[in-house]
């Protein structure tokens, strides 16, 4: 039964991947005029234009171009960078690890912070902690993440000198340096997600706490803490699981900005550079890999959700 459910979800994922890859691919069709001219800019010579045309297969019909690209992509060949000639998959996978580590730390921060604020806010209603939680929940969705990153740099790096302002060390090299280098970007990246989780969880906890079975629980002598932990969270966590899937996608997107602020050599920086250099094959590759990752994570959260929620029939 469960296997069947997974297969059904997979059947939904595959057309999704085809549509998104088609969208990613059609970026190149959006370039007004001849893409080769746009890519080469002022250095265009007839030979170079012909070379780009052959390289991108622009002399073929669009649908064939797409199928070729897709066929190669499935085999792990994303083409070569127009700018440096480096294979795209090589550049992408050397940076994927960096972005992945950053996003994971940001997610832990967002989820842990969201849980903390939501629970304290419900446990101490109308106390100063409740107001702090609501304040962060409101502010977090309005604060521009790149600006928050700079404010953190101003305070913790320039004023206090606790952590370096920029740069990145992989966790495999040195866990200490990794944490020092990741903590500020992770906070800047995760703040919006933390605020969203706080708001969602808080409002669903409020609903659960006024439910009949929780009132019955109180009359049977459970305390507030037990009510939140046992009844509240168990029921309120379900929507949060869905939020986590969405959050992962948002965070991957937001790394574009955060990696630029903190000079972290990840996927986001690669995306920005490839746009500035008009390196289209690279941009397609980066976006494709990120989207494939997001769809995969959403697929996994769907399955986790089904496992957690007994009401869902496979």
């Amino acid at each position: 039964m469960f296997f069947k459910f997974i297969m059904r979800r997979l059947l939904y994922v595959i057309p999704m991947l085809i549509i998104t890859t088609l969208i990613v691919f059609s970026f190149i069709l959006l370039i007004p005029g001849d893409p080769a001219l746009a890519l080469l800019g002022e250095n265009a010579t007839p030979e170079k234009i012909a070379q780009i045309h052959a390289q991108l297969g622009l002399d073929q019909p669009v649908i064939k171009q797409y199928l070729n690209w897709l066929g190669n992509a499935v085999q792990g060949d994303l083409g070569r960078s127009i700018f440096t000639g480096q294979p795209v998959e090589e550049a992408v996978f050397s940076r994927l690890g960096v972005t992945f580590q950053l996003v994971i730390v940001a997610m832990i921060f967002a989820i842990a912070g969201g849980l903390f604020f939501a629970i304290t806010s419900i446990y101490f209603p109308n106390s100063w902690m409740d107001y702090v939680a609501r304040f962060f929940g409101t502010l977090g969705t309005a604060i521009p993440n790149f600006w928050l990153g700079m404010i953190l740099i101003i305070f913790f790096s320039l004023q206090l000198g606790w952590v370096p302002a920029t740069g990145f060390t992989s966790i495999t090299e040195s866990p200490g340096a990794f944490l020092q280098g990741t903590i500020l970007p992770a906070i800047a990246l995760g703040a919006t997600g933390m605020a969203q989780i706080t708001r969602h969880l808080r409002s669903s906890l409020i609903e659960v706490m006024s439910a009949d079975y929780v009132r019955t629980g109180f009359s049977k002598g459970i305390n507030r803490w037990q009510a939140i932990m046992k009844h509240g969270l168990q029921n309120a966590m379900l929507p949060v699981v869905t939020t986590i899937g969405i959050l992962f996608g948002n965070l991957l997107g937001a790394t574009v900005v955060i990696e630029t602020v903190f000079a972290i050599p990840g996927m986001g920086q690669l995306a920005v550079n490839s746009i500035l250099q008009r390196d289209f094959t690279m941009l397609q590759g980066v976006v494709l890999v990120l989207i494939a990752l997001i769809i995969l994570i959403n697929f996994i959260t769907d399955i986790v959700y089904a496992l957690l929620d007994p009401r869902i029939e496979y």
């Binding site: 996608g249 991957l252 989207i291 997001i294």
Partner: peptide, 12 residues
Amino acid sequence: GIIAIPAILLAL
């Protein structure tokens, strides 16, 4: 398909 792409990435 479009919603699967994070907004900022799509805009970029």
